[in-house]
Computed example of a mutant assay.
Amino acid sequence: MSDGIAWIGAYHHTPSSVLPGMLGGISLTLARGVETDEFLINLGADLDELAARTPCRELRAPAGQPGQPSPHLNRAMYGTCGEWTYVLEDWGMSTWATGYQGKVESMLPCEGEEVLCLTANRFSPPAVIIHAPDAWAYRADFGSDTGKNSALDAALTAAGAVFPSMPESSEAEVVAYFEEYGERLPELVFAAAGAYWL
């Protein structure tokens, strides 16, 4: 991943069924200060796959009828990069964000841990950034920063991923900016996350 991760956001609007593998609507969760296997188990990783260090798994979502698997595959890739554990998912959401927002105790951030999550939120737009640099988490929609003047906020600004907003700008300026640059927004957000992380 030395060349950055902006490409993940570049394919954000591509339907995931166009090509085999992960492409559109990928969510990314990063964590450090947590034990890797414990973090992955809390997200639902298979114990045998963890023991074998399987880097990718394919899960079939239930089709609604017992014994009848869905033709759609939900994929998750996970691993480590430096002191970070990463999880890439293509089902339209981040498992960590879903659990965190649902107040699942094992997914709440703790003192001494850091979690950064970019969730596509395909089922409940807009796409969201959740940054938990310690026991508190801060949320920002794609196009804004967390408002905490953090290194992540600086990376978002430097990448051009913080768009004008009201009341600092007029409604017409905000709309015009989103119309011109909105398609590139996920790419800019992932570029910023890569600059912060890598």
Rank of each mutant, 00 (worst) to 15 (best):
S27Q: 03
Y181N: 14
L50W: 11
L43N: 01
P66A: 15
R60D: 07
P66C: 07
G33F: 09
A154P: 02
L108Y: 02
I130K: 01
P133S: 13
A6W: 07
E58C: 12
G67I: 12
E168P: 01
G102S: 15
A195T: 13
P126M: 13
G102T: 10
E58S: 14
K103T: 10
G99L: 11
F190H: 12
S170H: 07
A159N: 12
E49H: 14
A76G: 02
W7A: 14
S2A: 12
H72Q: 13
H13N: 11
W136R: 08
F190R: 03
A193D: 04
F178Q: 09
R122A: 15
Y86H: 06
S144L: 05
A191C: 04
L188C: 04
S169I: 01
H131E: 07
S70A: 06
A45S: 12
V174G: 03
G143N: 05
V128S: 07
A176F: 08
E168G: 10
A97E: 04
Y196A: 02
W84N: 06
A172W: 06
V162I: 15
G147I: 11
P186V: 05
D145E: 14
L198N: 08
V175G: 00
D3E: 12
A192C: 10
A120T: 15
D90P: 04
A195M: 04
L118G: 02
V174M: 05
L30M: 15
R32A: 12
D48P: 01
G79S: 08
A158D: 13
Y177M: 06
L28H: 05
T146S: 10
C56P: 00
R75A: 09
M107A: 13
P69Y: 10
H131N: 11
L28Y: 05
R75C: 03
D153W: 01
L185S: 02
Q65P: 00
A158Y: 04
T36R: 15
C117P: 00
A52E: 13
E173C: 06
I41C: 05
L188G: 02
D90H: 07
H72L: 14
A6N: 04
L59C: 03
E171T: 08
I8M: 11
G102W: 06
T29N: 03
C81N: 10
V175C: 05
L152V: 07
Q65S: 09
Y11M: 09
P126F: 12
A135C: 11
